[in-house]
């Protein structure tokens, strides 16, 4: 059993994500920019992993493998950030509090070390979820 930690997750914009998105969501730049979770160094330590290690993030409605990095924009301990987009939305709860807006920010996740797990490509995440993934790249 890998170490795990409970965190409060938010998913928001970043300029790197914006630039990469306009390049294209199937580009390596988009993959680099968005398939990461930004955390506080203390939380990474508590998880017992090195920086830039893959982790599995699981919420009430799904799970996704991303890379754990130290937040460029400081996150206090207990808070983590996945940039908005394909990977974040694998775990964002669709509940809306009757407002139309899903719970994009402020939902509990379990983060566990997953050094051996592969991060899926954007297409694999989305097409795979819809039964359209044919194993390409």
């Amino acid at each position: 059993m890998n170490n795990s930690i409970q965190l409060n997750l938010i998913t928001q914009r970043a300029i790197e994500e914006g630039v990469a998105m306009e390049k294209g969501k199937t580009t390596p730049e988009y993959f680099e920019a968005c398939s990461i979770i930004e955390m506080n160094p203390e939380d990474i330590k508590q998880l017992g992993i090195y920086r830039n290690t893959n982790v599995r993030v699981t919420s009430e409605c799904g799970s996704v493998v991303v890379k754990a990095v130290v937040a460029g924009q400081y996150c206090p301990p207990g808070l983590a950030h996945i940039r908005q987009g394909v990977w974040a939305n694998q775990v964002v709860p669709p509940r809306t509090q009757s407002t139309g807006v899903p719970q994009y920010s402020g939902f509990p996740v379990t983060v566990e070390a997953a050094p051996g797990d592969r991060i899926k490509s954007a297409l694999e995440c989305v097409q795979g979820a819809c039964g359209l993934w044919n194993g390409g790249t």
Binding site: G85, N89, P94
Partner: peptide, 16 residues
């Protein structure tokens, strides 16, 4: 827009 990327995946699955 790109609902495929920006909707929670559960919603994408239902719409699809």
């Amino acid at each position: 827009t790109d609902a495929g990327a920006h909707f929670p995946i559960e919603a994408v699955k239902k719409l699809r």
